[in-house]
Amino acid sequence: MKLKFSGKRILILGGSCEPAVFLAEYTIKAGLFPILTYRNEKGLKKISKKLYSFAGKYESVFLDFADTTSLDSMFCRINDDLDFLVDFAHGNMESLVASANEDDICRYFAENISFRAKILKRAGRVMLKKRNGRLVFVSSSAASRPNLGQGFYAAAKLASEALYKNLGLELGCRGITTVTLRPGYIDSGRGRRYMQTHERETCNITPIKRLLTCKEVAETILFFLSDSACGFNATEISMDGGLIAGK
């Protein structure tokens, strides 16, 4: 099946993580123009290194969820022209709820919920001008089944899911739709680190007995961005190899 896309410019938040770079590559090959965000030099270098053969076919732009001015400059840089948004960005906070530092709690929610709400407000308004837009939020199976210590992470993911869901509810009638993907353990970043110490138990509870690959996640997101997937709106889809289906 050849996928068709209504639009060209795709903003990829958290653009330096592995699945994001895979997605960027796929979107370029599909004729789209990805704009990947990074929050430090390390991230920028990672993007440049992985996409070196696609120079001129993508952009990278600075965005730090702790820095409001970076939001203004990002939207200025993308010139209020946006058709798609894929959101991989999410800070980690591992702590038991009853032992978390109170300042960290406020900072974490400000960065991972409030800041994201501001992004969605701006992106929604930009897309409204075209009456066209598609947004995919990459959540996590931890949103519905967190491990111990993932209370804040899960809370921020659930709150963010709610923002995306409502955007799709509110602007669906104007051609702007959203979908949330909840991947399980991915062979990348946080999932890979977790697996180094929990491989056996994780595989035991996952029916497909393996991690998801970045390629699988990126391909799925590409499908969700396509015209074929527009019927998915304001909803959450699990992609976890069956992880949360059983007891």
């Binding site: 308004r125 409204l128 001008k129 509110e170 602007l171 009638c173 104007r174």
Partner: peptide, 8 residues
């Protein structure tokens, strides 16, 4: 929704 579009 009309007001949102009007603002934009």
């Amino acid at each position: 929704i009309d007001f949102l579009e009007l603002a934009v």
